[in-house]
Simulated scan of single mutants.
Amino acid sequence: MNDTLTITLPPDIQAMLVTMTQAEGLSPESVAQSAIRDYLFIHQFRSLRSQLLQKAQTEYTDDDIFELVS
């Protein structure tokens, strides 16, 4: 099931979105979905990294954490 999310974009972002989607043949919906997916992944990554660092005896690098969550 798909839900609808309505967002308001400032004119400058809307113009950039239109230019990019036309140039790359993408839909605005696919760009928004990709951006939200990326944001959520980064948020989860940072949260897990923070939790691991609190429990760890050694320091992990971002690459170490990425390998653990990928």
Rank of each mutant, 00 (worst) to 15 (best):
M1S: 14
M1G: 15
N2Q: 13
D3C: 12
D3T: 13
D3V: 12
D3E: 15
D3I: 12
D3P: 08
D3M: 15
D3Y: 15
T4G: 04
L5K: 12
L5G: 03
I7M: 07
T8A: 08
T8Q: 09
L9W: 00
L9Y: 02
L9H: 09
P10T: 12
P10K: 12
P11F: 05
P11W: 01
D12M: 03
D12Q: 09
D12C: 04
I13S: 05
I13W: 05
I13N: 02
I13V: 13
Q14P: 02
A15W: 01
A15H: 08
A15G: 05
M16I: 08
L17H: 02
L17T: 06
T19R: 13
M20E: 05
M20Y: 14
M20I: 08
T21H: 02
T21S: 01
T21Y: 00
Q22E: 15
A23S: 10
A23Q: 09
A23V: 00
E24N: 08
E24Q: 12
E24A: 08
E24F: 04
E24T: 10
G25L: 01
G25Y: 01
G25E: 05
G25C: 03
L26S: 04
L26C: 04
L26T: 07
S27T: 15
S27L: 03
P28N: 04
P28D: 02
S30M: 06
S30D: 12
V31C: 06
A32T: 05
A32Q: 06
A32Y: 00
Q33T: 09
Q33E: 11
S34T: 15
S34P: 00
A35F: 01
I36P: 07
I36E: 07
I36D: 06
R37N: 09
R37L: 09
D38K: 08
F41K: 04
F41S: 07
F41C: 01
I42Y: 14
H43F: 11
H43L: 15
Q44E: 14
Q44P: 00
Q44D: 15
Q44I: 06
F45P: 00
F45L: 07
F45G: 00
R46G: 11
R46I: 04
R46L: 13
S47M: 10
S47I: 02
S47G: 08
S47C: 06
S47H: 13
S47Q: 14
S47P: 00
L48F: 14
L48K: 11
L48S: 06
R49G: 08
Q51T: 10
Q51G: 09
L52H: 01
L52F: 09
L53F: 03
Q54I: 06
Q54A: 14
Q54P: 00
Q54W: 06
K55D: 15
K55L: 13
K55G: 14
K55M: 12
A56G: 05
A56W: 02
Q57H: 13
Q57P: 04
Q57M: 11
T58L: 11
T58G: 03
T58W: 04
T58A: 11
E59D: 10
E59C: 07
E59L: 11
E59T: 13
Y60I: 05
Y60K: 01
T61V: 07
T61E: 05
T61G: 02
D62Q: 05
D62N: 11
D62Y: 04
D62P: 00
D63H: 10
D63S: 15
D63W: 04
D64I: 03
D64L: 01
D64G: 00
I65M: 12
F66K: 09
E67P: 02
L68D: 07
L68W: 02
S70R: 13
S70G: 14
